[in-house]
């Protein structure tokens, strides 16, 4: 993370002289970023090229060869319907990553914009928005998602909707707080004195300085979402059964945990790897997006 020299720059030489005094390290020297990019990149490639990589059809049943151990034909064995576990794992990446990433988009955009307006204009608008946000915050994330999916019915669309309906509030809070503190910064006052419109001040001058926090949060949100889908899948509320998905794989594998432990463990491991990769990416991005974090 931060090397001693960075500490030094921050601590002692904050107001020191001379141009280029802050030696920015190139992005490829940013270890968490690179590690995150590699892990997430590989997973995305796996998801995209699932049809090419997966040796078998993930939903093709072979009732003659159920619950087999690892073999040359089935590297990770087969499940109770005789489906190839490896193929289901690869196809599962497609569903889980898609939901994980896409479900972040709507709340990210909606929540950030709402938070930016609330923070910038304040007043009654801010008061109303924040009360609504408080109500949403009063419920635990997963409980809300589960209840909403239960009401909306299972399936990918309801998952998107449920997650979007619940997680926008975090972005409102983050962006609002950042905008409120940025609003007091002299450079924003300076921009206003430059006669610029509110929209221009908000989106050109404040925006780039505050949305990075939302982007960094979005990374951890992706992890949350993937956990959400997996939990939903595990509870049987997720993606409908034959579709390969890590959560339902864990659920199905669980009953054979003593005899065929790979069935539940391997998808679980995939969840862990994905979470780790995305977290690294978030860490790296936070380094990259705020190179001149001061104070």
């Amino acid at each position: 993370m931060s090397s001693p020299t960075f500490l030094l720059v921050g601590f002692q030489a904050r107001r020191r002289a001379k141009a280029r005094s802050r030696s920015l390290k190139p992005w490829y020297r940013n270890t968490p970023l690179v590690a995150g990019m590699i892990v997430v990149g590989l997973l995305i490639l796996l998801a995209i090229f699932a049809p090419l990589i997966a040796p078998y059809d993930p939903i093709a049943q072979d009732l003659g060869a159920t619950l087999q151990g690892p073999s040359a034909a089935h590297w990770l064995g087969t499940d109770k319907f005789g489906r190839d576990v490896l193929s289901r794992l690869i196809w599962g990446a497609q569903v889980d990553l898609r939901v994980g990433f896409l479900a972040v988009l709507i709340p990210f955009v909606f929540g950030s914009i709402l938070g930016a307006f609330a923070g910038y204009f304040g007043g009654w608008f801010d008061a109303i928005v924040m009360r609504i946000v408080d109500v949403f915050f009063a419920f635990p994330f997963l409980v809300m998602v589960i209840v909403l999916v239960f009401i909306l019915g299972s399936g990918e669309t309801s998952i998107y909707l449920a997650i979007a309906a619940v997680s926008w509030v975090s972005y409102v809070k983050i962006v609002r707080g950042e905008v409120i503190s940025a609003k007091e910064q002299d450079y924003v006052v300076g921009a206003r004195l430059g006669g610029m419109s509110n929209a221009r001040v908000l989106f050109r001058h404040i925006g780039p300085n505050v949305f990075s926090q939302a982007i960094i949060y979005a990374m951890s949100d992706i992890v949350m979402n993937i956990m959400g889908i997996v939990t939903l899948g595990y509870l049987g509320l997720g993606i409908a059964p034959p579709t390969a998905e890590w959560g339902s794989m864990i659920l199905e594998g669980q009953e054979f945990i003593t005899t065929h432990w790979l069935q539940a463990t391997v998808p679980g491991l995939m969840v862990v790897i994905t979470s780790l990769g995305v977290s690294w990416l978030g860490d790296g991005l936070s380094d990259l997006l705020s190179p001149e974090r001061r104070k």
Binding site: P4, L8, R16
Partner: peptide, 21 residues
């Protein structure tokens, strides 16, 4: 002036050097 090392000298005496120094 800032960056001259005066505060660091003082901190070294007080045993309050920041991490890394």
């Amino acid at each position: 002036e800032s960056g001259s090392g005066k505060s660091m000298t003082l901190r070294a005496i007080a045993g309050l050097l920041p991490g890394g120094v």
